[in-house]
Simulated scan of single mutants.
Amino acid sequence: MKRGKHVYTVLRYAFTSIFALGMMYPLLWMVSSSLKDTSEIFIHAHQLIPSQFKFANYTNGIKGFAGISFVVFFKNSIIITFFSVIGAVLSSLLTAYGFARIRFRGAAIWFACMMTTMMLPHEVLTIPQYILFQKLGWINTFKPLIIPSFFGGAFFIFLLIQFMRGIPKELDESGKIDGCGVFGILIRILLPLLVSPIITVSIFKFYWTWDDFFSPLLYLNSPKLATVALALKNFSDPTMQTDWGALFAMSVLSLIPILLVFAFFQKYMVEGISTTGLKG
Results as ranks from 00 to 15, higher is better:
residue 102 I to K: 08
residue 108 A to I: 09
residue 79 I to C: 03
residue 80 I to R: 05
residue 89 V to F: 02
residue 87 G to H: 00
residue 127 I to D: 07
residue 81 T to D: 06
residue 72 V to I: 11
residue 90 L to D: 06
residue 79 I to R: 00
residue 117 T to Y: 07
residue 69 S to T: 14
residue 89 V to E: 07
residue 93 L to E: 09
residue 81 T to L: 08
residue 72 V to F: 01
residue 91 S to A: 14
residue 121 P to C: 05
residue 71 V to T: 10
residue 94 L to K: 09
residue 95 T to N: 08
residue 82 F to S: 14
residue 122 H to L: 07
residue 129 Q to F: 04
residue 87 G to S: 03
residue 69 S to I: 12
residue 108 A to T: 10
residue 89 V to K: 00
residue 124 V to D: 06
residue 93 L to S: 15
residue 99 F to Q: 11
residue 87 G to E: 01
residue 110 W to N: 13
residue 116 T to V: 13
residue 81 T to W: 06
residue 77 S to Y: 02
residue 106 G to W: 00
residue 69 S to R: 06
residue 131 I to R: 13
residue 79 I to K: 04
residue 104 F to A: 04
residue 130 Y to H: 04
residue 111 F to Y: 15
residue 78 I to M: 10
residue 113 C to P: 00
residue 75 K to H: 07
residue 130 Y to F: 15
residue 117 T to L: 07
residue 127 I to C: 03
residue 112 A to W: 11
residue 84 S to T: 10
residue 97 Y to E: 04
residue 125 L to W: 08
residue 117 T to D: 11
residue 91 S to W: 03
residue 73 F to I: 05
residue 69 S to L: 09
residue 80 I to G: 07
residue 116 T to C: 11
residue 120 L to G: 03
residue 95 T to E: 11
residue 88 A to R: 12
residue 106 G to C: 03
residue 106 G to V: 01
residue 100 A to N: 05
residue 76 N to A: 08
residue 68 I to S: 10
